[in-house]
């Protein structure tokens, strides 16, 4: 799983550099987020601009990250959802759970 992790003050930006986020690689994203939580980084933006396809496992990894962040009084927000990816959040009603921003700048500025 290719991700780029950058710190922007108290917020970590995770850019997922994969076309697919599915049962094959979502576990790695989950592990990556857990490492960050263990380092005390509880505010995250996950940017999905390059992700064209997400399945229920990919959604599950993001939900897991969201729950971990919330439990630590942090937040996990999303940015850059392509239309088909956004429709997955709508189908599973997760668009009501996550704060979703068009781009990383807006997402980072919202903290």
């Amino acid at each position: 799983m290719l991700v780029r992790v950058q710190e922007h003050g108290a917020v970590v930006l995770i850019e997922v550099k994969e076309e697919r986020l599915d049962a094959h690689n979502s576990g790695e994203l989950k592990a990556q987020m857990l490492n960050l939580f263990e380092e005390g980084k509880n505010n995250m933006v996950v940017d999905l601009q390059e992700v064209r396809f997400v399945d229920s496992s990919g959604l599950g990894a993001l939900v897991s990250g969201f729950k971990n962040a919330s439990a630590r009084s942090g937040n996990l927000k999303l940015s850059g959802l392509q239309p088909q990816v956004k429709s997955m959040f709508e189908l599973t009603r997760l668009h009501r759970v996550f704060e979703i921003f068009p781009g990383t700048q807006e997402a980072l500025a919202s903290f």
């Binding site: 229920s56 599950g60 599973t92």
Partner: peptide, 20 residues
């Protein structure tokens, strides 16, 4: 049927298949 407020990590696969 997964309830969004329960925020489970798993259990959406068959729901998605049934929906589509």
């Amino acid at each position: 049927i997964p309830e969004p407020q329960n925020l489970e990590d798993h259990g959406r696969g068959i729901y998605i298949i049934r929906a589509l």
